[in-house]
Design a protein around this nucleic acid. Structure first.
Lengths: 224, 224
DNA sequence: CTCAAAATGTCACATTTGTTACAATTAGAT
DNA sequence: ATCTAATTGTAACAAATGTGACATTTTGAG
């Protein structure tokens, strides 16, 4: 792996070439391939290494013994896997990670991660920042789940989508099926609520393009 | 604050006296009092300091629309507040923290925290461990929220309570009101479901003592 | 292009949960 | 021990969501 690729990894962002060299010579790390469909980490497996995706992506699911799954999120290169759970007393993967495509990954043992963090402050701040971002995502998801009605969830979701665009149009970034799954509701219920909201003059829904018609009322839904 | 108190704080666990001295002389920190009911941190307020409770406890709540709140958890001394969100790009408190009792707290600015972490490896590992434990708690809560029905949530909750006892009896560790709040459902709905489950022969419910009658069927509810 | 699989839109109906209200019981302070 | 506030148990009714089914449209592999 060359230097250009390395500094593209968030954990190694802003590292000077000399730092990369000294850090990488001090730690153990291996590059590993995973085929599509292969399991990178089992749920509840001890989490004793950091896995950083170099290419490809994984889906992270929480599963109960006989098959029911809760999808948490997809993680794509060049992001790390389960970075939040690497340390701690009973540190286990909270999800099962399955390769969505062929994957090349960097695997670093826990001890080496610790070594890196204490020897280089840039890596330390990167690590803390990345962790905080994942925590924020987790927390956001939890907040999201706390919205009671589908309408509220949609208002929240659409507003933040439109805000990213800087417009009053939200273009869905995934299928409505997977959106329903993300919301934790059934697909027909999600469709129905989109229809209802259109009838109520809140939005205009056309395929994946949702136009926010009455932004104030949408904001009211989630603001109080 | 004396040395004995300091090493009782998880973040400073296993520190040698000489380390405590050198670390504390290098960073800024203040002790602050909060009265019962006072707000230590607002939801969405920038998270630029670490707050460690020395005495007392706080409740952490996320406010959702219509004034409804989702209680995330209580945090008691000597634990830190929102440690997961201190770093990161858009680092804001995900919850509002309100004092449940009079509180004495240690407040350390973000920059000083970073300084501590890079100057002392013990503090670094403590910090990482504490963070991971909170992440695990968050993740567990998320898993819990993913259960669809009240019955499933109850099955999950009661089974893990009974398991702690090593018996088939779950003694509720809080009021049913607060349990309903924790579940994110209304209190009458929770009561009704307890009644239904009793009628269905799953449990026997008497005040705070819930006897698990048909454990297999309860397990099926969450296993499947 | 072609065609099968996936995704979408929409129903009628069943189920779950919320809401409001009220009475009974329990807990805690003085 | 007494009294007030909190908790608990329950009910009828309203609202939200799930389910299963079906036709239509879109997507993507070959």
């Amino acid at each position: 792996m060359n230097l250009n690729d390395i500094v593209k990894i968030p954990l190694f962002k802003s590292l000077k070439p000399s730092e990369v060299e000294s850090v990488f010579s001090a730690i153990k790390l291996t590059e590993t391939n995973f085929a599509k469909g292969e399991i990178l980490a089992l749920q509840d497996e001890p989490c004793n290494r950091l896995i950083i995706l170099l290419t490809g992506s994984v889906k992270a699911e929480m599963s109960a013994p006989s098959g029911k799954v809760v999808k948490v999120e997809d993680i794509a290169a060049p992001n790390p896997l389960a970075i939040l759970f690497l340390f701690g007393q009973n540190n286990r993967f909270p999800v099962q990670a399955t390769a969505l495509e062929d994957i090349l990954a960097l695997v670093i043992p826990k001890q080496s991660v610790l070594k890196m963090l204490s020897m280089n402050e840039t890596i330390l701040t990167n690590y803390l920042d990345i962790s905080a971002n994942f925590a924020a995502k987790l927390s956001k998801k939890l907040h999201f789940m706390s919205f009671r009605t589908i309408r509220e969830k949609l208002a929240m979701y659409l507003l933040s989508l439109a805000q990213q665009n800087g417009s009053n149009v939200a273009e869905l970034d995934r299928t409505k099926s997977s959106l329903a799954e993300y919301f934790g509701v059934s697909r027909p219920s999600l469709e129905r609520e989109l229809t209802n909201m259109q009838e109520d003059g809140l939005i205009k829904s056309d395929k994946k393009i949702i136009t926010l018609v009455d932004i104030n009322r949408l904001k009211q839904l989630i603001d109080f």
